[in-house]
């Protein structure tokens, strides 16, 4: 994705961008720490157990949750399964071709997976029907519909919003050994939020567009839980980052995560 681009245009754009950055401005008029407009719609796919469509500026993602039963992993017999998968649809950008997920798509699924898992958003221990034999599997599939930078946060918001509105038919064992089916909400404990920033020189830009990403030095995706603790992170970009800049990004992202969390809360309450 990032490999095939005209370096001449990139360098000119980069110069223009850096000139603006010295005045703390961006090409689209935002301040350095502003997100683009975020729009979250839940319950868009009726056949899924939970779903959400999210747009962050022109970046658009849809996530659907399916809950099925299956066998647990041998090393975690007392836990349900969480499987996250992300796909860049071929029409999402001129640079994407059909085929199995490439390394960039795999990175998105794994970063979203870690954020949800490590924040302990889902109580996987409560998703056991018979220990070691039968558990619920939570499949979160994310499709990227349109790409304009910051795929990570759009995918993460879609996944989290979908999970927060997920319901499923829970089998409850009765005394005579038979099962009763009851519609339940997926048990969630918190709302994890991921914030992606990039650095260009000394400047730190939150929620980069694709154009900004194409001239980035480093990228950093950080996930925070409700208490504002870090629970997952991933560096991207092919340039090193200093410790001081890293700590600065943690500080900015922590405040941003609060903002986004109240937005998600509002959407879920009104759903």
């Amino acid at each position: 994705m990032s490999i095939k681009k005209s370096p001449i245009i990139e360098n000119l754009r980069k110069m223009q961008m850096i000139e603006l950055l010295s005045k703390e401005r961006r090409l689209d008029g935002r301040s350095l720490t502003d997100f683009r407009p975020i729009n979250i719609k839940v319950g868009v796919i009726q056949k899924s157990n939970g779903s959400a469509e999210v747009s962050v500026g022109n970046t658009k993602a849809v996530a659907g949750v399916k809950i099925e039963t299956g066998t647990p992993f041998p090393d975690t017999p007392d836990q349900g399964l969480l499987v996250v998968n992300a796909e860049f649809l071929p029409f999402s950008s001129a640079l994407i071709e059909p085929g199995p997920p490439d390394e960039d798509a795999i990175e998105v699924s794994r970063v979203v997976d870690r954020g949800i898992r490590e924040s302990q958003m889902i109580d996987l221990k409560s998703l056991v029907i018979e220990p070691g034999k039968l558990v619920y599997c939570v499949f979160v599939d994310i499709s990227i519909l349109n790409m304009d930078g910051n795929i990570f946060d759009a995918a993460f918001l879609a996944a989290v919003s979908a999970l927060l509105t997920t319901t499923f038919d829970k089998k409850i064992a009765k005394e005579d050994g038979s099962f009763e089916v009851q519609k339940c909400r997926l048990p969630t404990r918190c709302i994890p939020i991921s914030i992606t920033s990039i650095t260009i020189g000394d400047a730190i830009l939150v929620d980069p567009t694709e154009e900004e990403e194409s001239v980035q030095d480093s990228r950093l995706t950080l996930t925070f839980n409700d208490q504002g603790f870090l629970c997952a992170g991933q560096k991207g970009g092919s340039t090193g980052i200093s410790k001081e800049q890293l700590f600065k990004i943690v500080e900015i992202s922590k405040a941003k995560a609060e903002e986004l969390r109240s937005l998600v809360k509002k959407v879920i309450e009104n759903a």
Binding site: E118, G228, F229, C231, G233, K235, G240, V250
Partner: peptide
């Protein structure tokens, strides 16, 4: 880490860290 340039070139983490713990971990 690149020791002479003092730059971090790979960073990933999972698990709960407070901001202080994160800074301590990096150091």
């Amino acid at each position: 880490y690149m020791p002479n340039l003092d730059k971090i070139v790979l960073l990933q983490f999972d698990g709960i860290f407070t901001e202080e713990e994160f800074k301590k971990a990096i150091d």
